[in-house]
Amino acid sequence: MKKAAAFLFFVTALLGVALAAPAEAQEKFPKDPVTIVVPYAAGGSHDLMARALAPQMEKVLGVPVVVENKPGGGSTIACNYVKTTPPNGYTLVTVSPTMSIIKYTLPDSGVTFDQFEPIAYVGYSPQGVFTRTDAPWNTLKELLDYAKANPGKVKCGNAGHGGNFHMGAVGIEQATGVKFTHIPFKGAAPSVPAVMGGHVDIIVSTIADTLHMVKGGSIKVLGLAAPERNKFAPDAQTFKELGYDIEFSTYWSYLGPKGVPKERVNALYEAFKKSAESKEVKEFFDMQGATLSLKNPEELKAYYLKEDVKWGRLIKEGGLMP
């Protein structure tokens, strides 16, 4: 009797294990908190975007969404960290075009976009050229005409050598044939007082980084490297209108380490999509000067391949490889 009971217990236990195994493989996702690692200091546009999305994503996913800052090293520190986390969809990183640039400018860091699983792209903001309000130029054309006539004379501030804005300025030079004197600052913020005080003539930045300063009357926007005019700065000419087909932006995309299971990638993308389209986040986009535009994982992957070619060529032609 005892033996039989023991046997029965053994069989049920085995059965239990056997039944539980496939259930575990397809366990509910997510059941633990999801972390979004931000490669920049708190307060930057990628940090604020993640913090605006997090509460909405919590509603969709039903688990806490934590924003963690790991700033520095041209975003390589955060990327290297996320790259080595288990690919279970619980740790994501938010990146800008810097992701495609560091492969060429900081090869020793060992970060390339193909080490990551594309998950979602929620929006962008075009790069442009900004100057002080009493500058002699009022349109992009006036600036370019002056810069062509005076090579090297226009001092152009950026947010650090080899960064997104520096590369944007180099891209403008390559497309239009002008020559700037590049003056790098540590981050986007310190370049603004420099342009206001006339220490540099122009800065390259994005609408999202400067919209409030343009609205507040501290600086003005001359032109944007975008295919069409921007709704937040409708008066700003585009390079395309002048015949230069260039497009530089900052964008908000989210990646996981390579190998996140397909269904988890999709679940996360749906969460990003729903959150980005929520009323609260849409309002946030408007405040930030960001344009809502979604790319699903496949589209994002294709986009990254295109970006890689674009930046690779620009950086090699510009002689900016280390």
């Binding site: 200091a41 708190a42 307060g43 930057g44 913020a189 310190p190 603004v192 007082p193 206001m196 409030h212 300063m213 507040g216 501290s218």
Partner: peptide, 10 residues
């Protein structure tokens, strides 16, 4: 001017 000079100000 809307210029943050520290992370907290940002």
């Amino acid at each position: 001017f809307g210029i943050p000079t520290t992370a907290t100000m940002a």
